[in-house]
């Protein structure tokens, strides 16, 4: 199963889908062939709410990647379902960002990704 392709493809629905392990009832991120929690091989895909909170963030002031013009916000978001993922926070003034701030998902089109999930203030 091409789980990488499935992950990116399903984002085009406008929702974030993650692998879910029926055996141990836990979400799996990043996508992989086998559940890292209980090592069962059977994983389903489920849509998530797309709601979460900023677990931590950094404002990048010096960038080594030409396509990323500073300043921008690189963050870890903790989804309501308990999964944590790296992302950008957009549509958010730098001075108003805070750890714990509620955010919701937004799909953007960015180089090589037709639907890339970022987060905006909820």
């Amino acid at each position: 199963m091409d789980y990488k392709h499935t992950f990116w493809h399903k984002l085009r629905t406008g929702h974030l889908w993650l692998q879910y392990c029926p055996a141990c009832a836990r979400y799996v991120f990043y996508p992989r062939e086998r559940c890292p929690h209980c090592w069962e091989a059977q994983l389903d895909w489920q849509p998530l709410s797309g709601m979460g909170r900023i677990y931590s963030y950094t404002v990048v002031r010096v960038s080594a990647l030409p396509e990323f013009q500073p300043p921008y916000i690189y963050a870890l978001v903790e989804l309501d379902e308990g999964v944590r993922l790296a992302t950008n926070i957009e549509d958010c003034p730098l001075e108003s960002i805070q750890v714990g701030m509620p955010v919701r998902i937004k799909m953007i089109n960015r180089e090589g990704h037709e639907a890339l999930p970022v987060f905006v203030p909820a």
Partner: peptide, 18 residues
């Protein structure tokens, strides 16, 4: 695959998050 699309700065951004 899942972090580079967001412009992480290697170890620098990781420790900044901490």
């Amino acid at each position: 695959d899942y972090e580079l699309p967001y412009g992480p700065m290697g170890f620098n951004s990781g420790y900044a998050l901490i």
